[in-house]
Amino acid sequence: MWFDSWSDLGRIATVGPLAYVALVAVLRISGARTLSKLNAFDLVVTVALGSTLATVLLSADVSLAEGVLGLALLVLLQYVVSRASRRWSVIERVVKSDPVLLYRRGFLDGPMRRARVTRSEVLQAARGSGRGSLDEVEAVVLETDGTLSVLSTAPDLPSRDS
Score class of each variant (00 low, 15 high):
residue 71 L to E: 00
residue 75 V to D: 05
residue 135 D to V: 00
residue 89 S to R: 14
residue 109 D to H: 13
residue 72 A to I: 00
residue 25 A to Y: 01
residue 20 Y to V: 07
residue 88 W to H: 11
residue 31 G to V: 01
residue 58 L to R: 07
residue 55 T to P: 03
residue 65 A to G: 03
residue 29 I to G: 03
residue 38 L to F: 07
residue 138 E to A: 14
residue 119 R to I: 11
residue 70 G to F: 04
residue 147 T to A: 13
residue 64 L to N: 06
residue 34 T to L: 15
residue 124 Q to H: 12
residue 118 T to S: 05
residue 24 V to K: 07
residue 154 A to D: 09
residue 11 R to A: 01
residue 145 D to Y: 10
residue 58 L to I: 13
residue 74 L to W: 15
residue 151 L to A: 04
residue 151 L to K: 09
residue 27 L to K: 01
residue 121 E to I: 03
residue 34 T to E: 01
residue 119 R to Y: 04
residue 82 S to I: 06
residue 19 A to S: 01
residue 102 L to P: 08
residue 161 D to E: 14
residue 37 K to A: 15
residue 71 L to A: 09
residue 97 S to I: 01
residue 148 L to A: 03
residue 116 R to W: 01
residue 49 L to Y: 06
residue 83 R to F: 11
residue 151 L to I: 15
residue 106 G to F: 09
residue 157 L to N: 02
residue 108 L to Q: 06
residue 31 G to P: 07
residue 75 V to C: 14
residue 10 G to L: 14
residue 4 D to L: 10
residue 21 V to E: 06
residue 60 A to H: 13
residue 112 M to P: 08
residue 37 K to P: 03
residue 109 D to S: 12
residue 161 D to G: 00
residue 61 D to Y: 12
residue 155 P to W: 03
residue 152 S to G: 15
residue 68 V to I: 15
residue 79 Y to G: 13
residue 40 A to Q: 13
residue 146 G to Y: 07
residue 145 D to H: 12
residue 161 D to M: 08
residue 142 L to D: 05
residue 142 L to C: 01
residue 102 L to T: 07
residue 74 L to G: 04
residue 151 L to W: 12
residue 154 A to Q: 14
residue 86 R to Y: 10
residue 28 R to F: 04
residue 58 L to N: 12
residue 24 V to W: 04
residue 59 S to F: 12
residue 29 I to L: 15
residue 35 L to D: 09
residue 85 S to N: 02
residue 5 S to P: 07
residue 63 S to Y: 02
residue 140 V to N: 02
residue 119 R to P: 07
residue 44 V to N: 08
residue 159 S to N: 13
residue 21 V to Y: 06
residue 125 A to H: 01
residue 44 V to R: 10
residue 93 R to T: 08
residue 64 L to G: 12
residue 148 L to Q: 02
residue 56 V to S: 05
residue 29 I to Q: 06
residue 20 Y to T: 08
residue 118 T to P: 01
residue 17 P to W: 09
residue 23 L to W: 04
residue 87 R to A: 13
residue 96 K to C: 12
residue 60 A to E: 13
residue 39 N to S: 09
residue 57 L to M: 13
residue 130 G to F: 00
residue 115 A to P: 07
residue 124 Q to N: 11
residue 45 V to K: 10
residue 1 M to L: 13
residue 126 A to Q: 06
residue 77 L to D: 03
residue 147 T to C: 10
residue 75 V to L: 08
residue 68 V to F: 05
